[in-house]
Simulated scan of single mutants.
Amino acid sequence: MLKTMKKITALCIFTLMLNACADSASVNQQAATSYLQTVNEAKQKGVVDTSSTTSKRIHQVFNKMYPYANRENNTGQPFNWQITVIKSNELNAWAMPGGKMAFYTGLVDKLHLNDDEIATVMGHEMAHALKEHGKKKVNMGTFTNVVAQVAHIALSTQIGSEGSGLIIGITKDWALDKPYSRSAETEADEVGLFLMAKAGYNPEAAPKLWEKMQTASSGNSGVFAALSSTHPSDKDRQANLLRLMPEAVAIYKGRQ
């Protein structure tokens, strides 16, 4: 009887995971809807930048790069690339599934980014969309939540539901979600490096950008900060990019 119950439980979990996994088309559509709402809210607050020199430079890099990003799209779904420049001191940029992007002026202005460095960030964010990290994060979140819930039920019989919830939350955060996120960031670095090179931007700017980022975030340095972050440490990123640099430079010089 116990073996039968275990088989039924395993089958139910597997079925739940399959049903919960989102497909590319639906995720892209949900992202487009959310993006439109976000942009409209930004417009209402008067923080959408369409006219500054910084905004024009960001759009220029975007317009040069997205045709090359389209060539790298192996998702089976066409992307309607869009970018919105947000007036903010925040050092940030992001991409949603389906190619919906935002770039914050503070990232360019505070770090004094040149066009190659803007392209480094642009390529990285485009790579997140191309590799469907948003979709995978949705599905990975569903998977880890299912695993966590099953483990919670099993442990609650031994140590009580309140205590097991805390333990599972920590385990899920460190053992499952964080390593996956760092892996996605590393992949975005790599794909973005080659994308910017194909679009005609010097990939040698990439490690220099992360030097600037390391300096800007020096107050949060240290082993614990690197482990607890969803991003690889800046030094690790630099080392990985330098490893790939000869191939990226060859692509860049080959189109000149």
Results as ranks from 00 to 15, higher is better:
Ala25Gly: 06
Ala226Trp: 10
Ile251Asp: 08
Asn40Met: 14
Tyr66His: 15
Pro97Asn: 00
Met140Tyr: 09
Lys43Ala: 09
Ser221Asp: 13
Gly163Asn: 15
Met1Ser: 15
Met196Gln: 10
Ser55Met: 02
Ser55Tyr: 03
Arg243Gly: 05
Val147Ser: 06
Lys212Gly: 02
Glu204Phe: 02
Phe143Gln: 08
Met17Gln: 11
Leu242Cys: 08
Arg243Tyr: 12
Thr15Ser: 15
Thr15Phe: 15
Lys6Ala: 11
Glu90Val: 01
Val47Leu: 00
Ala20Phe: 14
Ser156Pro: 07
Met196Val: 04
Ser229Tyr: 03
Leu36Met: 13
Thr105Ser: 10
Arg243Gln: 12
Asn28Asp: 12
Leu209Val: 05
Ile170Pro: 09
Ser218Thr: 02
Ala216Arg: 10
Asn114Asp: 14
Ser233Val: 09
Ala175Pro: 04
Asn80Gln: 05
Leu166Ala: 13
Thr53Trp: 04
Gly99Cys: 05
Leu18Ile: 11
Tyr68Cys: 03
Pro67Tyr: 00
Asp236Met: 14
Gly165Thr: 07
Ser233Cys: 04
Gly106Met: 07
Val39Lys: 10
Met140Thr: 02
Ala127Tyr: 03
Thr171Val: 15
Cys12His: 00
Tyr252Ala: 00
Gln256Asp: 01
Arg237Phe: 03
His133Met: 08
Ser181Tyr: 04
Pro78Ala: 12
Ile159Val: 13
Arg182Met: 09
Leu111Ala: 11
Lys64His: 08
Ser229Leu: 03
Glu117Phe: 05
Ser55Gln: 01
Asn240Ile: 14
Glu117Gln: 12
Ala69Gln: 00
Ala95Pro: 01
Asp116Glu: 11
Met101Ser: 04
Arg255Ser: 05
Lys43Ile: 10
His124Pro: 06
Thr38Asn: 06
Asp189Val: 00
Ile83Lys: 02
Leu111Thr: 10
Gly165Met: 04
Ser52His: 02
Thr84Glu: 06
Asp109Gln: 12
Ile153Phe: 15
Val61Glu: 02
Pro246Lys: 09
Gly98Leu: 00
Leu227Ile: 04
Ser34Asp: 13
Val27Lys: 00
Gly141Leu: 05
Asn114Gly: 07
Thr120Asp: 03
His128Pro: 00
Met65Ser: 04
Ile168Met: 15
Gly163Ala: 15
Pro232Asp: 01
Pro246Trp: 02
Asn89Gly: 13
Ala22Phe: 13
Arg237Ser: 07
Thr75Met: 09
Gly99Gln: 02
Glu185Gly: 00
Lys64Gln: 15
Phe79Tyr: 11
Met126Thr: 03
Val147Pro: 01
Pro78His: 09
Ala205Tyr: 03
Ser52Asn: 06
Met245Ala: 01
Pro67Thr: 00
Ile58Lys: 00
Met122Leu: 02
Thr9Trp: 13
Lys253Arg: 08
Ser229Met: 06
Ala151Ile: 03
Thr15Val: 15
Val191Pro: 10
Gln29Tyr: 14
Asn202Trp: 06
Thr54Ala: 05
Ser34Glu: 12
Gly134Lys: 05
Cys12Trp: 02
Thr75Ser: 13
Thr4Arg: 15
Thr4Ala: 15
